[in-house]
Amino acid sequence: MIDRGQSFVHVYHRYKHRVYAYCYRLLRHPQNAEDAAQETFVKIHRSLDQLENAASLQAWIFSIARNEAFTILRRLRPTEELEEETENVWDEDNPLENVVQRERAGIVQHCLGLLKPTYRELLILKEYEQLSYAEISQVTGASESAVKSGLFKARRAMRKKLESILKERNEI
């Protein structure tokens, strides 16, 4: 059993940048990311002493952060089915604008922002947080095989989009 108080401060300082970065990359908005991160840590503080298995702390923290970030996403776009299983990996509400003017790293980040949140979060959890499929499965509630195929689809879509943007850019 983990005790609250000092443990919380330790956990907060250890995870604050990662939680904020995760929320920021998912929400693409600094204030919303800060709100989501704050709510995440308030919930962690409230329930830290109920966490039985310290080994799952990381996945537990990201699952709380995910819920907070998706709550904000739903509030921003209440009509969107965020959990919808679909072949369409692109977020059509997010127009591609002036992307050809950007540098490659910027283009990659912009494309990441264009992905549907469910696919975007898989790439964020894998590429930036370097979680295993089992941990991503714990965070998202999806099966490991769904995580595997979701990552494959997200990467394939990113590669295709990048190829077409860079091709277009070279033609200008």
Partner: peptide
């Protein structure tokens, strides 16, 4: 693609977050 994605420098949590979270706690 992995190399390009990982080029991105992660955003740091703003200092205000410390105040907001630690005060609430």
């Amino acid at each position: 693609l992995r190399a390009n994605l990982r080029e991105d420098i992660p955003p740091l949590a703003p200092e205000e977050l410390d105040m907001r979270v630690l005060t609430a706690a």
